[in-house]
């Protein structure tokens, strides 16, 4: 049980990060903290994807540590395995997308702060009700 856990500790960590992120999004009142939660969810998913590419964790199956996906004649002679680079490339795109999302969100937060002078959601809602919107 514990061995299984330790062997896949990166997957467990990604699950943990995703759930902390989800909790932050739904439980926190501060809009900035919600954004932090979203970033955590995204990071957790990236960790999951990157773990997918790794072959090193399959040592129990008799497969050795995989090398980085770089063409190297010596490695080919010795019959080394390569880490699957595709998930890494996908996540490179994913990171860009996540950065863009964070940028848009932060820009919005600046506008919201200028408008309401606070980022607490309940206070903003109160002010909206007062304004009769």
């Amino acid at each position: 049980m514990i061995e299984e856990f330790l062997e896949h500790y990166n997957y467990w960590t990604s699950v943990l990060i995703i759930f902390i992120g989800l909790y932050t999004i739904f439980a926190k009142n501060n809009l900035l903290k919600k954004l932090l939660g979203l970033s955590l969810v995204q990071t957790g998913i990236f960790l999951f994807f990157i773990s997918l590419g790794d072959i090193g964790s399959l040592q129990t199956l008799g497969i050795g540590e995989a090398t980085p996906p770089i063409i190297w004649e010596e490695a080919e002679k010795r019959g080394y395995l390569y880490v699957n680079p595709l998930p890494h490339v996908l996540i490179l795109t994913g990171i860009v997308v996540a950065a863009a999302t964070t940028c848009v969100a932060l820009a919005l937060l600046i506008r919201i702060y200028k408008e309401y002078k606070t980022l607490e959601e309940d206070e903003i809602i109160e002010m909206e009700v007062e304004r009769g919107e």
Partner: peptide, 9 residues
């Protein structure tokens, strides 16, 4: 702004 932010999250 808040509508957009909720939508974003």
């Amino acid at each position: 702004l808040r509508a957009s932010y909720n939508y974003l999250i």
